[in-house]
């Protein structure tokens, strides 16, 4: 059950990254959330043939990697995991859209290939953005950001609880799987005869656990209200927000690479 232990490792790795104390980590989580969402919207708002305009957007992840003190390759590796879906769906573009749009050194490049490339670039940029958000912010601070967006406590609380118990449940799954596969060495997955009992029993145990957790809460005075931290906004947060938004709007309004290229080639 390699994928389960991978997930535990994954979550813990991102968790550890979020404990760092860099410039980016210290920013207000809400500011980071807003910038990330704005970044993703700008990224996907470019037309399917507009690959050149996407290039300035690479600056944002690069800044987050360096200022946030995040190692490049582990995060990049994770962003590959999502690529297959996009590759699979996008492959119809070069097949179906054969209109030549560009000629470059006598090669005609069809619209399909350009839109395929832009799709892949968008996929990378948006995935990097999400992973960088969590690895510079952490789940508890995301919860704070959600609260400052006035998302009801009840949702934020259960969001945090789900996250909290994911590693507990994943560990239980690993031991169930180990127990199963030790006694059924020839099987790749779990045989249909065991489907119900295996997951069902885990479900019942989980249900009872929820009961105990609730007991643990009321025994310590819980009455439906969860405490939630707040973080104050600082001037730096505000500046970061403004600079990033202005930068993103500029990339949207002006084709920066083309301007640079025109200057250089003197067109």
């Amino acid at each position: 059950m390699a994928n389960v232990s991978d997930s535990i490792y994954e979550i813990r790795y991102l968790d550890e990254l979020s404990q760092k104390n860099s410039f980016i980590h210290k920013l207000h989580p809400l500011v980071k959330l807003i910038v990330s969402i704005f970044y993703i919207i700008i990224t996907v708002s470019f037309g399917k043939y507009e690959i050149l305009s996407l290039t300035p957007l690479t600056i944002y992840p690069i800044i987050l990697f360096t200022l946030g003190d995040i190692k490049f390759f582990p995060i990049l590796k994770r962003s590959f995991l999502v690529l297959p879906v996009v590759l699979g769906l996008g492959i119809f573009n070069p097949i179906l859209d054969r209109e030549p749009l560009l000629t470059f050194m006598n090669f005609a490049i069809t619209g399909g290939w350009i839109s395929y490339l832009s799709l892949i670039m968008k996929c990378f940029l948006t995935v990097l953005c999400a992973l960088l958000l969590i690895s510079t912010t952490g789940i508890n601070n995301i919860a704070i950001a959600l609260r400052s967006l006035l998302i009801p406590k009840i949702f934020v609380t259960q969001f945090l609880l789900t996250y909290r118990y994911i590693s507990v449940l994943l560990e239980e799954i690993i031991s169930i799987w180990t127990a199963y596969s030790l006694r059924a060495p020839e099987q790749k997955g779990i045989s249909y005869k065991s489907w119900g009992p295996l997951l069902g029993q885990l479900l019942i145990r989980t249900y009872d656990r929820a009961q105990r957790i609730y007991n643990g809460m009321v025994l310590r005075g819980f009455s439906g209200e969860f405490y939630q931290d707040k973080i104050r906004f600082s001037l730096i947060d505000f500046c970061y927000l403004v600079i990033m938004i202005v930068f993103l709007l500029l990339t949207k309004l002006y084709n920066i690479p083309l301007i640079l290229g025109n200057i250089l080639t003197g067109v």
Binding site: L161, R164, I213, G216
Partner: peptide, 13 residues
């Protein structure tokens, strides 16, 4: 009151 399984009692971040 401490529980047999500490995981059931520690539910915060």
């Amino acid at each position: 009151f401490t529980f047999q399984n500490a995981d059931d009692q520690l539910f915060n971040g």
